[in-house]
Amino acid sequence: MTGSQKHLKGMSYARYGYLFALPFIIVFLIFTLYPTVYTFVLAFTDAHGVGNEIKFLEEPFANFSKILSNKTFINSMKNTVLLWILNFIPQITLAMVLTAWFTARRVTIKGQGFFKILFYMPNIITAATIALLFHALFGYPNGPINEIITTIGLRDSSYNFFTSKTAARLIVAFIQFWIWYGNTMIVLISGVLGISPDIYEAADIDGANGSQIFFQITIPNLKTVLLYTLVTSLIGGLNMFDVPQLFLQGGPDNATGTAVVFIYSKAFTGKQLFGQAAAASIIMFLIIAVCSAILFYIMRDKDAIAAEKMKKADMKARRKGASVI
């Protein structure tokens, strides 16, 4: 590998490296970087509606102060975090339990492949469709869920899930949980399968039981994967839009309105206040950037960094050795 690369260098193939990366770079500059920078710029302007002239604000941070003192925005941020916590805690708990069951080496569950396929399925189905399907299932007064409730005698009459803030939030959180726990489970299982079997063999020889093995070997070795799941789920959670938007358009009384639902309604409905929506986007962008910096730090290639350090130290030592001679 290194031999061939040296050879490449000698032949000066480097220009093909640039050439092949060029389409990515051009498209990235036009469709990602420019819109990102432009969003930052718009956050300091009075942009509203379409086709209107855009002027910079006299007070540069006016949009930001407006957004940060906007009760609906603060409420939407709170909803976003609340809905994320309500879905993530049961999600990670169930995924961990299933991971423990599906990777246990003494008591194996038959039909694992079948269960995995079914548990993962909601993750791949269009979220917009799922939101409206649940809207139909929880329909009032005669949706399937209400029929179950009244038939088994849980209540005498139908319950209107759509006017209760708590019920609406719980349903949205449940949908998110239902969509994601299978995905999390598969990621965790693959993490467990990546742990060296030698460690487990040693534990077996020492006579550790199932729960000791799970809590003292599996979980500590799964730390990176768990952190990865936590951060990616948090970023995804901050970005939650399809389900709350289509389930009840963020209602009732903005109880399920998330930050992205807020940005959408600011920019694309009513007065179309793009400047303020851009300011809200920048706030979200910064939060997500911090989260992904954490992820970047977790996922950095430790082996490569160690190898690089070794190489540098080695070169230094050699140079020193050479100068002595």
């Binding site: 990602t32 970005n239 929506a277 970047f296």
Partner: peptide, 10 residues
């Protein structure tokens, strides 16, 4: 990890 939603205005 940066989702396209947060730069959608620009």
């Amino acid at each position: 990890m940066i989702p396209p939603t947060v730069t959608s205005i620009g």
